[in-house]
């Protein structure tokens, strides 16, 4: 066996186990559901080909559009909420602006260890009419029939969920940024400090530019995670009341598993993938521009 043969064989051997599993468990079923998305398959009988009809129907469905809006809000809260907050917290910890930094770091990261189903139940208990928040407000106002009306507002019902998502995920980003900040050569900052640079100047000129890559990468995870968000929301509200908190993954789930519309549901899950690819390409375009500017 020549060296290059040996190299090629090793290459395949290293890749094979992972790729084999990945292909048979994820790629193949996805291909299967891509095919189904062009049919009106309803669970039994032979699938009937209907072209893009499912996609057309989804895009004109009011419920889908509201779900899409909710998904985009979740993307927004992750990209413009969790990531900057995570960065800010990491920065404060890194620059030792608070005492007991280690303790705070532990506490802020803690929620990520808890299963989304548990988080949902916990917060449901807290917000529910027999829960903690309502009990406090009832005691404070003396109004014993008080309930939180925010859950019944079409536009705002998603807000408590956004809040819980923020609580859940900020810690992850904080840890990632914290770790990367620590990796920076301290001499750079020291030199800047000696030159009399202010805190904000250091942040803008030195720290942020070196973090562009990390920010872009975390944003990719934030986007893909946000678009397939399901567990937490399904366990908290099931998409209700009246579809107000529905997201695309729940929309897909209800159509597939409750209404037995496999073709339709498959089309919805393909839309999630398409959206994510689109957003990530956009993000890569933006971050490349930024990188160039900082160079």
């Amino acid at each position: 066996m020549t060296f290059s043969q040996q190299k090629r064989m090793s290459y395949y051997a290293f890749l094979a186990p992972g790729l084999l599993l990945f292909a048979s468990i994820i790629i193949f079923p996805v291909a299967y559901s891509l095919t189904l998305s062009f049919t009106s398959f309803g669970g039994y009988g032979t699938p009937k080909f209907i072209g893009l009809a499912n996609y057309a129907k989804i895009i004109s469905d009011e419920v889908f559009l509201h779900s899409l809006r909710n998904n985009l809000l979740i993307v927004a809260i992750s990209v413009f909420g969790q990531i900057p907050l995570g960065f800010l917290l990491a920065y404060l910890l890194h620059r030792k602006m608070v005492r007991n930094g280690n303790f705070y770091q532990t506490m802020i990261f803690l929620p990520i260890t808890i299963s989304p189903v548990v988080v949902a139940l916990l917060w449901n208990q807290i917000f529910s009419s027999s829960g903690m928040v309502v009990a406090i407000i009832r005691r404070l106002t003396g109004e014993n029939q008080y309930v939180m009306r925010i859950f019944e507002d079409k536009q705002l019902a998603i807000v408590p969920i956004l809040f819980v998502l923020l609580w859940m995920h900020t810690g992850t980003y904080m840890i990632i940024f914290y770790a990367n900040l620590q990796k920076m050569t301290p001499s750079l900052l020291e030199a800047a400090q000696i030159d009399g640079a202010s805190e904000s100047q250091m942040m803008m000129r030195i720290i942020l530019p070196s973090m562009v890559g990390t920010i872009a990468t975390t944003a990719i995870f934030a986007i893909s995670g946000s678009l397939k968000a399901f567990d937490l929301i399904y366990a908290m509200t099931g998409g209700g009341p009246a579809h107000y908190t529905e997201v695309i993954a729940i929309y897909m789930y209800i159509n597939t598993f409750k209404y037995y519309k496999y073709g339709f549901g498959s089309a919805a899950s393909m839309i999630i993938v398409l959206l994510a690819v689109g957003l990530i390409l956009l993000l890569q375009y933006i971050s490349r521009k930024f990188e160039r500017r900082f160079e």
């Binding site: 994820i26 079923p29 996805v30 399901f230 993954a249 597939t256 498959s266 899950s269 393909m270 690819v277």
Partner: peptide, 8 residues
């Protein structure tokens, strides 16, 4: 990364 469990 983008594939939801439900679709497979």
């Amino acid at each position: 990364l983008l594939i939801t469990v439900h679709s497979v």
